[in-house]
Design a protein around this nucleic acid. Sequence first.
DNA 1: GCTAAATGTTGAT
DNA 2: TCAACCTTTAGCT
Length: 264
Amino acid sequence: MPEGHTVHRLAREHAALLAGRAVRLASPQGRFAAGAALLDGRVLTRTEPHGKHLWYVFEGGLSLHVHLGIYGTWARGSGPPPAPVGALRLRMTSGDDWLDLRGPNACEVHTEAERAAVLARLGPDPLRRDADPARAWARVRRSRSEIGRLLMDQSVLAGVGNVYRAEVLFRRGLSPYLPGNALGREDWDGLWVETVSLMRAGVRAGRIVTTRPEHRARRSGLVDREDAHYVYRRAGEACRVCDTEVRTRVLAGRNLFWCPVCQA
DNA sequence: GCTAAATGTTGAT
DNA sequence: TCAACCTTTAGCT
């Protein structure tokens, strides 16, 4: 269940586990058998996340490119791996450790050139230290598209998905329907900083929590599911800040949620 | 046990 | 703009 924060967290975890080690790859399901054979036994150099894409860079220059899509998941364990059941696209093992990949949108071998080609069509990733927000702003400021659409466009900004789109706009008090070219520089700067901050928190926590304690029903203890978001999937419920009904409508092919008062 | 929906992208229309 | 793809789970019965 991945937006960029999940991908960056996996990149760190998997690098800590496998970097510098020879890795065995197998595709019990068969769909990635040829690719797995090509990389099998090579030493993993590093992982390289960008937005929702993740590359496992192996010695020799070839990479494993994984995009989880909506459904993709990794499972991890050590000790004897379970017998492969169902559609197991890829199993990576090194020593006692194993990683199982199911349901990804993409799982393929990339050359350096192929990796560069994908990167070339991605906007800056708020979770990367080398991200240049000015590149995204250059697109936003001259676009007539709604900001709620631009945030979902991976060529403008890479890593934001449907949850962060809704929550970041709420936190900044911006209407999703504001055209990019109607945003001021301060609006954009605030939006970027908010995105970086919420997504970093997401990497740390391993999930998306965007509410401040004073806006939660339960103010102490673990943040339960109900309390984690301001507007995402809360259509018809009361806004946590102003009590207005949270609204929903499809924008850019996905269900958008927003408060018409806080985000006028 | 069934159905719909889901934190996503691509390619056809 | 819409269907297709991949899989799991929540919310029904």
